[in-house]
Every structure is written in C-alpha cells, then in structure tokens.
Write a protein that binds this DNA or RNA. Sequence first.
RNA 1: GCGGCUAUUGUAUAACGGUUAUUACGUCGGUUUGUGGUACCGAAAAUUCGGGUUCGAUUCCCGGUAGCCGCCCCA
Length: 421
Amino acid sequence: MSKENSNKHLSTDPYKGVRDFYPEDMAIQQYIFDTWAYTAESFGFERYNASVLEPSALYKAKGAENEEMINEQTYTFIDRGDREVTLRPEMTPTVARMIAAKRKELAFPVRWYSIPNLFRYERAQRGRLREHWQLNCDIFGSTDISVDVEVIALAYQIFMNFGADESMFEILVNNRQTMKKAYEMLGITNEETIKKLTRLNDKKDKIDESTYLAEMVEALGHKDLANEVKKMIEQEDAGENAVVAGLNELGIKNVRLDRSLARGFDYYTGTIFEFKDKAEGNNRSLLGGGRYDNLTSLFGGEAVPGIGFGFGDVTMRDFLETHELMSTDITSPTVMILPTDAEFNMHGQKLAQAIRQVGVSVATDVSTRKVGKKLSAAAEAMVTYALIIGENEAKTGKYSLKNLTDGEETFGNIEELVKKL
RNA sequence: GCGGCUAUUGUAUAACGGUUAUUACGUCGGUUUGUGGUACCGAAAAUUCGGGUUCGAUUCCCGGUAGCCGCCCCA
C-alpha cells in the first residue's frame, strides 16, 4: 500500500516491478535455487556468473531487429565516463562473450549454468516482472544431437526433482532448419515471409482459425498455399525429429513435435523447445531455449556452437504453486536463550557465543516479553532447545537446558550442556 | 505504448448515501510475581489522494496515483 500522503516520508514499496524478499519469500527462493543448482550439477554442469552491467553494444550487435527491444525494453543509461551501459536483460550474450574469450583454452564441450538476475523495462504483468532470476544452462562446443537431448532432459529433471509428474507439463520441440526446408518445399524462400509466418504460427493457439487463415493468406497471397502451409504445420511426424525420439529413449514421454513453435529470438539456428504448463488457464511457457550455433561469431574467430535454456523464478514459482509442490522451511536456531530480564541479556550473549563454538546455531531472545511468552515463541518457531537465564542461573553458572520436543530438561554448567548438544 | 478492473487497520475481508465501520489472522498486554504451540480476556490499528453532487460521501460522479489483469513485445 502506498501512503503517498507525505511530502516528508518515503514509500515503503519496492521499486516498480521488482520484489522484496522477506524471510518467507527468501525461503522459497532458496529452495528453488538449491534445486536448480543441484539438478544442473547432477548433469555435470559448472556454475559461472558475471556482472549485471554490460556494454549496450553486446545487445545491439545482434541486429537491427532488436533495436526496439534494446531502446525501449532495457535499462540502458550513460555512465559518468560516457559509456552506454545496459542492465543485462538475458544471460545468453554474456555467456557467449565469456565462452568466446576463452575459446582457445576451454576443452569443449563445456557445460555451464548460472542463476543471474535479469532486468527488462516493460509493463509488469502475471509471470513477468522487471527483475527476475533465471536458471541458465548451456552446452557449448558440440553440435551432436545427443547434446540437444541432454539439455532438454536436464530441464525435465528439474520438474521431476520438484516432485512434478508428466501430466503437469508438456515439452514442445521444433527445429528451425527443418522448418526452413519445409517452407522451401512449398516454394517459400523469402526470409521476410518466413519470419511473418513463423510469428503467426507462434500465436496460432491464441487466435481463432479463421483469423489465422486470413492472416496466412495475407502473408502469402494465395489461398491454396496458405492451406498447404497450415497442413504442413499441423502435421504430426514426431518420428522424424531426432530430439523427440532421443527423449523418448530416455523415458521422457510428455514431449511432442510442434511445428507452430517459434520462439522469439532470431539467433536460434536449429532445435528450439518450450515447456508448457498443462494446468488450465496457464498458457504461458515455463521455460524455453534452443540451439544457437553462430552467436559467438560476434566476437570474431570461429563460432562455438551452443544450446541452452533459460528458466525464470517467477514462472517456476507459479508452477509450483499451481500444482501444490511448494515446500519450504524457515530457518530457526537450534537453541534459544531466554533471559528473564534485560539485565541478563549480555550473559545470554556470552552463553550463546560459547555454544556457537561447537557448531550449534543459537540466538538470544532479548524481547521484553515474559518467559512464558518467550517459550511459546521459541516452540512456535520450531526451536529445539530453550535455556533460561535468571537470577539463580546467573549466580550459580548452572542452567537447565530444555528440550522443547519432548520436554526433557538437562541441568549443569555450560561445558556439560554443550556436550549434551 | 494501449485497454479493462480494483483501491477499507500490518494482512485478508464485511457493510452502508446518515449514531461507535464488521470479522479473522498477525502484533502487543493480561489470565497470582520464572516454563509451551492450545484456550480465555483485553488493547492498538483502516475507508488511497484531489475535486464535484448532496443537508450529509467510505459509498455516487470526474481526475490523479498505485496495484492487478490483458494487448503489444517476448529474453
């Protein structure tokens, strides 16, 4: 809520389109990141990272088509040294840059992953914010089809590791090369036309059939040709796609060839894929990626082929919530020290410090509440042990350590109690 | 950039053109001075901002702001 009545007070709201992560949000975030990292590493991927700042040229170099995107949908500014800087909107150009820089010394293929935060300057809506985190997994240096299969299998495994099953999502695969050939077979070679058709096919499911056909006719000029294209797109020849076949061989069944699948970026050159939530009303794609064999050539030298995907935390969260797969624990210390009065707070801190030396997490409740309330709070926070310090304990140096799970109390000096822990 | 919807305590909500604006959760305090998550009692806490209509507006109208949803675009 914004209390903007103030000329004097700052708003407590976060900046437009970005999120604060309170402990309960952070617990979820942590759970997602941990599962991502664990899964990627189980496939032998190594983690990398880079700065959120990149020279704007990195994105402009991809061609004029992206100009609108860079000018209007990124955070771009001039630094104090007159350099044009952009907050990275995606990770692929960055990792391509890093790979290109070391292409002489890396032993390909390399498998790399990262969980960067990315920025886009656009109107926020469901599943799309101005800052989000995205798991990026890429394999560089191999054009072998098994590598395409591997990357998709990794993405699939993430869902499995979150407890999902195949009925909850679906994998769509397509290939830019074969699409190009298929258009050629129909006598369509004009790149602009193909681009138009690709875009149209991408939103095929969102518009009704007559609109779809009408736009098709408009792009092609012929009704017959439009019908042929439509037929080609709807053709289900999954057996002809080696990636789909390979995934089936790995036991992954919720995958199909979808010739209407387009993906937005022009840099994809071969396999493209997308994961979709099968839950009703959730038509947005969960993750997407593809093969980009020419991207590193921007940096000169021989191009290193790559394939990878990006998976955003916002869509991941939506998916887990939709399918009730979210499980998180807020961290709490093992021991809570409860001074009965503020005069014993420092004494509590000393004990806490001693307990920490043996690797047990511990905090002191320095609130002004009564001991009963402090105990309740500790129990509610799932703390395992409580240790009360009052006048007697402070005098004698002997405390009783209470196990909040079974109610058992152990009495003794700090050395004895630490042993117990 | 365009369109639709919404705005009530910390959060989630109820209600009404007219007395003290509902309820729940959370927070804080209490239930014989130092021992449990439950229970019981109590407290603090709200009508987004600016105009208009009206005897009277939180309610109706206009505008601002913010949020949500969608379009565009998609990383």
